[in-house]
Amino acid sequence: MTIVRLGYVAMSVHLKNCSPSQTMTYRQFSSIKDREAAILKLERIAISNLQNCLRLLKHNVANSIHFFRFSSKLIPLANHEELRDWRYMRPLKEALREIGDYLKEHPMRVDFHPDHFVLLNTPNVDTLNMSVKTLAMHEALLKGMSVNTEHRCVLHVGGAYEDKEKAMELFIENWGVIPHKLQKMVILENDDTSFTLEDTLYLCEKLGIPLVFDYHHHLANFQNDRWLESWERVVNTWAHSPLPIKMHISSPRSDKEYRAHADLIDPIMFLGFLNEIKGTVPEIHCMIEAKQKDEALFQLGDDLEAAGLERIDQGSFRMK
């Protein structure tokens, strides 16, 4: 038997005026002559983003959704080089505490997927330093919510830099200088252009990092299409994690735009995956990456129930 829990990314198409990613460009910031007033505006935006996160969590609880990815754009300009003196966590303390209190009352798996510019295999020292700063910001946000930071940040391996083998070895080299508390946050995902399931497994097994299997990415980028032969190894990367194994599910927008995400999830594609791994793990958390966000989750849930899966609640199923 395997319990399947569905999650979605960052925002809802059902809640109005609830974006957690409201932003401000540096050009807009610098156009405000009073710097203190500009910083206060940034802080108001960040607090509004966090308040909208709380609304989203309440929406999830009302709909029995137990898995959610926070936006990584909660704090505009957080690590901009011209705002190095901005202590942005101080004004967010109360908003973060409110989220933490709600999560204690209504436990839910939450995590982040930092943007593509977080590159741990970069040969550029400045880029690596900025990547570490960005991970530290995510750690501070999780701690402000009183969320255990272990295995909460999904990353891609990074750039191939025209030499994939060298890029993988550079990831290992750079990993050695990443603070341990940030290493513990990281989980790695196979991508759709450069680093395959086999590549990512190599790094995860060597460095003790859990692997997030992205099924769509694998179908777009593989060396060996027999992914099930590696499934036990994927599961074993989670052996020492306090969290259940996690995977990503999305569907191609079209044959011509195969790598792009569709609005919804193809239930036949997803059921093909679930039927292969049924019984191999007690529980799996499946993050839906679709343009229609929570609507994609609701539709997929109905499709799975129609296909005969036992529905536990809106976002959970039991496969026997």
Rank of each mutant, 00 (worst) to 15 (best):
L211T: 09
V234H: 09
I209V: 15
R84F: 09
E150A: 07
H156Q: 11
P76N: 09
C53Y: 01
Y215H: 14
T237D: 06
E43D: 15
D225M: 13
F70E: 09
S250P: 03
I249F: 10
T134M: 13
E232L: 07
K291P: 00
M269A: 06
L309A: 01
N121Q: 02
K104R: 15
D85Y: 14
S72W: 05
K293N: 07
M269L: 10
Y88D: 10
Q183C: 08
S131M: 06
R87G: 03
A307R: 05
I65L: 12
F273G: 01
Y215L: 15
V212H: 11
G159K: 03
D214E: 09
G144R: 05
V281N: 02
F213A: 10
W238R: 04
G144Y: 05
L50R: 11
T127L: 15
E283T: 10
K73G: 12
D126M: 04
S19D: 04
K293G: 06
D214R: 12
N124D: 15
A78K: 09
C53L: 04
L211Y: 02
F195Y: 09
W231N: 08
L243M: 07
V110R: 08
K33H: 14
W227N: 06
D303K: 08
E139F: 11
E150K: 12
R259G: 00
F112N: 09
L274Q: 02
L92R: 01
S194W: 07
W227D: 11
S146G: 14
P267D: 12
H66L: 13
I284Y: 08
R44D: 14
G100F: 04
Y161R: 11
E229K: 14
R318N: 04
R259F: 00
A136V: 04
L297V: 14
R35A: 11
G279R: 10
T23L: 02
K33A: 15
F195T: 04
E173K: 15
D192K: 01
L207D: 11
K184M: 04
K41N: 07
M89A: 15
L188D: 01
S316C: 14
P107F: 05
Q314W: 02
V125A: 03
N52Q: 12
I99K: 04
H106N: 15
L211E: 07
K93W: 02
L243G: 00
P210R: 07
L271T: 02
N17G: 01
L170V: 02
K33P: 05
S71F: 03
M168E: 06
A38C: 06
A78R: 10
E94C: 05
F270E: 03
I284D: 08
D294Q: 10
M145E: 08
K320E: 02
L141D: 05
G158R: 01
F67Q: 09
A78Q: 01
M24S: 13
V147S: 05
A38D: 08
K133P: 00
C53N: 10
H106F: 11
F213E: 12
